[in-house]
Nucleic acid binder design. Structure first.
Length: 472
DNA sequence: TGAAATGTTGGGGCG
DNA sequence: ACGCCCCAACATTTC
């Protein structure tokens, strides 16, 4: 009776899972395994918020597998797999591919060594609509601009059909054999915090497959019709909130596109965001240094400031600029920030504070439940103007105007910065400009219960224009 | 997936 | 009635 190991990573679902489908097609039984090897992803080991999500996603997957998900801490995935192959007498190892540079390097080696030692090793695609190496422009090179990339994908026919996975009933490794392999309890992976900072995250999210399916259905049934107009209003819940499910593979992009096309509304604006996700992976795969270094070489010696206290104020949401602080506090409390506000907060850090985009990327990496190396690197480099298809250097967001445009009643600011909740709409995005009696009447005391702005917006904008202008 | 400065237009107040 | 000024409102240019 032949047995195949299915090595789960960030493909934490049973449906639309090519590795699982192939293992079931080729072998009689499967052994589902998760190796906890954060060190191998260095310097981008999962952050704290991601760890929380991963813990619960693993618990959920394990439940779906009737408890038969072998959890193993691993200093060395290859050695652990080799050992497991031997102890379980497995004939093959199946997994789905990932695209971060450190992981690609590891997986390439794992596949090579396993095959050299006579163990079948096969990988599939659970994470993307298109493999990065299958997409290129007319010169045969990777795309560097989103619009032509997306047009190319659409012309190629975006896959709309999830992979069919055979029924698992009776196909999992036997309970006794499973118990003999010595997996650890989920708690032993140490993914959830010892001090309970995760209450706000737990309130905001349900990290299960069932919740992912429900959210996709709910989004396509209602919110998506208002998506084009509503996606920029952070006070409204009119975005998909599917990013963490997609990151951990509890939901696959093929499942999303299939559902979009089956829905009444074609959801083209939303599908474009799925396209950005593809583009981010495309770029990170072809330009692996861009997680840490700017794609545009002119930024290699950029005169970023170094200022620990400004960075800390930004991280804590104590910059004194309401839209920025609201976003940073939403992030800290709930593990997520609305995309419009991510751009505002990122622009403020890089352009107004002149602090390196890498510092912002690191903080997002640690605090976002949807932290994804490809999307995070693309987003930060876009804002800083040093990436592929980057924002023009002169584009500096004004957090007051952005607030007035996209949060006109200040509902978002009031929710996340309650100290400002009683300010009239007119001043809620710029309390420093409000008359003293208005501040007093609203219970706002600048410098006491809400900070004065870290920088003058006008002056810091001019400084940014000057510094970026020098690159030309 | 900007913002601010500058230019243009047209209505209304007023002498 | 007419010219002049003011200034929104909108468009264009520049950073």
């Amino acid at each position: 009776m032949s047995l195949a190991i299915v090595w789960f990573r960030r493909d934490l679902r049973l449906a639309d899972n090519p590795a699982l489908a192939a293992a079931l097609a080729d072998h009689e039984r499967v052994l589902p395994v998760y190796l906890h090897a954060p060190g191998e992803e260095a310097p981008w080991s999962p952050g704290a918020a991601s760890g929380w999500w991963l813990h619960h996603a693993l618990a959920d997957l394990k439940r779906q597998l009737g408890g038969r998900l072998l959890l193993l801490p691993a200093a060395d995935s290859l050695a652990t797999l080799q050992d497991l192959v031997e102890r379980s007498s497995a004939a093959a190892v199946y997994w789905n591919r990932l695209y971060e540079p450190a992981v690609v390097g590891r997986d390439t080696r794992v596949k090579q060594v396993l095959r050299d030692s006579g163990v079948a090793a096969r990988s599939g695609n659970a994470a993307l609509l298109f493999e990065p190496w299958e997409v290129s422009n007319k010169q045969g090179r990777p795309f560097r601009v989103f619009t032509p990339f997306w047009k190319y994908l659409q012309a190629s026919g975006v896959p709309r059909r999830p992979v069919v996975v055979p029924d698992l009933a009776g196909r999992l490794i036997g309970q006794r054999a499973f118990a003999g392999l010595g997996g650890v309890d989920l708690d032993e992976l140490g993914l959830v915090p010892a001090i309970p900072w995760d209450a706000g995250i737990a309130r905001a999210w349900q990290p299960t497959r069932e919740a992912a399916e429900a959210r996709l259905e709910e989004f396509l049934a209602g919110d998506v019709r208002r998506y084009a107009g509503g996606r920029d209003l952070p006070a409204k819940d009119q975005v998909s909130r599917l990013s963490p499910y997609l990151h951990f593979g509890q939901l696959g992009p093929r499942e999303v596109t299939a559902a979009c096309h089956a829905a009444k509304d074609p959801a083209a604006e939303f599908l474009r965001e799925i396209g950005w996700r593809e583009f981010a992976h495309h770029l990170l795969y072809h330009f692996p240094h861009t997680a840490d270094s700017p794609m545009d070489g002119r930024f290699d010696a950029f005169p970023w400031r170094e200022n620990e206290s400004d960075l800390t104020a930004w991280q804590r949401g104590d910059t004194g600029v309401p839209m920025v602080d609201a976003g940073m506090r939403q992030l800290w409390v709930s593990g997520w920030m609305h995309n419009r506000v991510r751009m505002i907060a990122a622009s403020f850090l890089t352009k107004n504070l002149l602090l390196p985009w890498q510092s912002g990327a690191r903080w997002f990496w640690d605090t976002l439940v949807d932290a994804d190396l490809a999307s995070n690197s693309l987003g930060w480099q876009w804002t800083a103007g040093c990436g592929a298809d980057a924002a023009p250097y002169f584009r500096v967001f004004n957090p007051v105007l952005q607030g007035e445009k996209f949060d006109p009643r200040g509902a978002y600011v009031r929710r996340w910065v309650p100290q400002l909740s009683r300010l009239p709409d007119k001043w809620v995005h710029q309390p420093w400009a409000a008359p003293a009696e208005v501040l007093a009447g609203a219970g706002v005391s600048l410098g006491t219960n809400y900070p004065r702005p870290l920088v003058d917006l006008k002056a810091s904008r001019l400084r940014a224009l000057e510094v970026w202008g020098r690159l030309k």
